[in-house]
């Protein structure tokens, strides 16, 4: 069997977390990973380290400590911002060979997956992708057990790699709760030397757009209005914005001219695969349901308790969407203020 660049006997008892950031703040998934690693490390007597790559990233070091890092390895260089897979892989690779952690974790985000996929090959080690849970088996000398799902979520598997280090895993955002940050907690900052040349970086970021240009097929949340919302797409738009999603419609509101035909969901419209579809005031005509059947979770609100849409929903609310939606907007806003 081919060996990784370093083995279990050379590995340090440490969790390394790749810290993703956007607009000078650590991404939530990175904080989730710090929180989880802290808990696992405390039980095992291990260390937790953050790997922070970017430009002018120092202000985020404090947060990494507050959420549980004992040390933060920092590489600060203009060519590390914005993320390109070549630059981040190169620096992460050097840092890992220096620190030799037993475990290396990334969020299963677009950038986290890109980085982890490249790194694992460069390190000749294994990669457990898109974990929904992590455990540490101390009896076997610190073997990481990653829980993953396959076949559209139908099968759960436990994955280990006993003989290769680092044990790499990407973790699905949202599966671990955030710990309470300990403000003022500190640790060690370990600076990394960066030897990057622009010509070595093949990726050119031509344009970068945040918070715009999402099409319905790619929207993480879809708020769909049917006949029963009587054209109040302004309300749905407000709700969709709060949830970071898009507004769709069944055929009748499109027919009425209440909303553009591009937003029609279903057999003769767009077929979507959001994490959540919130269907308001739609009866659940078969041709429409085809358009949301791949949604992770379906929530339906309809006044008619017999409406077929409830057959296709995970959560069904028998009620007037025009009363429930404003209340939901209120509740989400209140939550935002609290947070």
């Amino acid at each position: 069997m081919a060996a990784s660049l370093y083995g279990p006997e050379e590995a340090q008892s440490a969790f390394w977390i790749y810290l993703e950031h956007e607009q000078r703040a650590l991404e939530r998934v990175s904080l989730e990973l710090l929180s989880k690693a802290r808990a696992l490390a405390d039980a095992a007597g291990w260390r937790v380290a953050g790997l922070l790559l970017g430009h002018r990233v120092e202000p985020m070091v404090e947060d990494a400590f507050a959420w549980g890092a004992d040390e933060v390895w920092v590489a600060d260089h203009p060519l590390l911002e914005p993320f390109t897979v070549e630059a981040h892989t190169a620096i992460a690779f050097q840092a890992i060979l220096r620190g030799r952690p037993s475990v290396f974790l990334c969020g299963a985000t677009p950038n986290g997956r890109d980085l982890a996929g490249r790194l694992a090959v460069r390190l000749r080690t294994g990669l457990t992708a898109d974990c929904t849970d992590l455990r540490l088996d101390l009896e076997k000398g610190g073997v990481l057990i990653g829980e993953v799902t396959g076949f559209g979520g139908g099968i759960v598997a436990l994955i280990t790699m006993p003989n290769h280090r680092p044990q790499m895993a990407t973790v699905r955002p949202g599966v671990f709760p955030l710990a309470t940050p300990q403000r003022g907690r500190t640790g060690v900052v370990i600076p990394l030397e960066v030897d990057l040349h622009p010509e070595a970086l093949r990726t050119r970021v031509v344009e970068r757009v945040v918070g715009r240009g999402v099409d319905l097929t790619q929207a993480p949340v879809l708020v769909v209005g049917g006949r029963g919302i009587h054209g109040r797409f302004d309300l749905l738009q407000e709700l969709a914005s709060l949830l970071g999603g898009e507004v769709g419609a069944t055929r009748p509101p499109v027919d009425e001219g209440w909303i553009d035909r591009e937003r029609q969901v279903g057999q003769t419209g767009v077929v979507c695969r959001p994490k959540v579809a919130l269907v308001c005031g739609a009866s659940g005509a078969f041709q429409f349901v085809v358009g949301i059947q791949n949604a992770g979770t379906v929530i339906a609100i309809n006044t008619d308790p017999e409406a077929p849409i409830f057959e296709f929903a995970d959560y069904g609310v028998v009620g007037d969407a025009l009363q429930v939606i404003p209340a939901l907007i209120e509740a989400l806003r209140a939550e935002r203020v609290m947070a």
């Binding site: 436990l158 003989n163 290769h164």
Partner: peptide, 10 residues
Amino acid sequence: PTQVSGLAQA
């Protein structure tokens, strides 16, 4: 490097 150490129906 990876091994499947357990499987279950979700």
